[in-house]
């Protein structure tokens, strides 16, 4: 785990895994419905052709999330990169 601060989800590269710390995106009711909550593991698996939105896997669901919305989600990244094939 990194230090206290963490990284915005929008800055993660494709194939990386992280755990959500804080959700500060406005209008995040929809995110809550998908179970994107503090403590939830997230995998960034794809990017749209033009680089935005991101495609993440949350609790087995594939979600498209704009970088701007992802910028409000602070995550903690693990030290070892995780093979995205094994993510859930």
């Amino acid at each position: 785990m990194q230090g206290e601060g963490g990284t915005p989800l929008s800055e993660l590269r494709r194939g990386s895994r992280a755990v959500v710390r804080v959700i500060g995106t406005p209008g995040s009711d929809r995110l809550f419905d998908f179970g994107l909550l503090p403590g939830t593991p997230v995998d960034v698996v794809l990017e749209a052709p033009l680089g935005d939105p991101l495609v993440i896997v949350v609790r087995g669901t594939l979600l498209s999330l704009r970088r701007r919305d992802a910028a409000g989600i602070i995550v903690a990244t693990g030290e070892t990169p995780v093979d995205r094939r094994h993510c859930r």
Partner: peptide, 12 residues
């Protein structure tokens, strides 16, 4: 603008 409404599920 209405934030957050662009979140979308991609079915398999």
């Amino acid at each position: 603008e209405s934030p957050g409404d662009a979140v979308m599920e991609l079915p398999p």
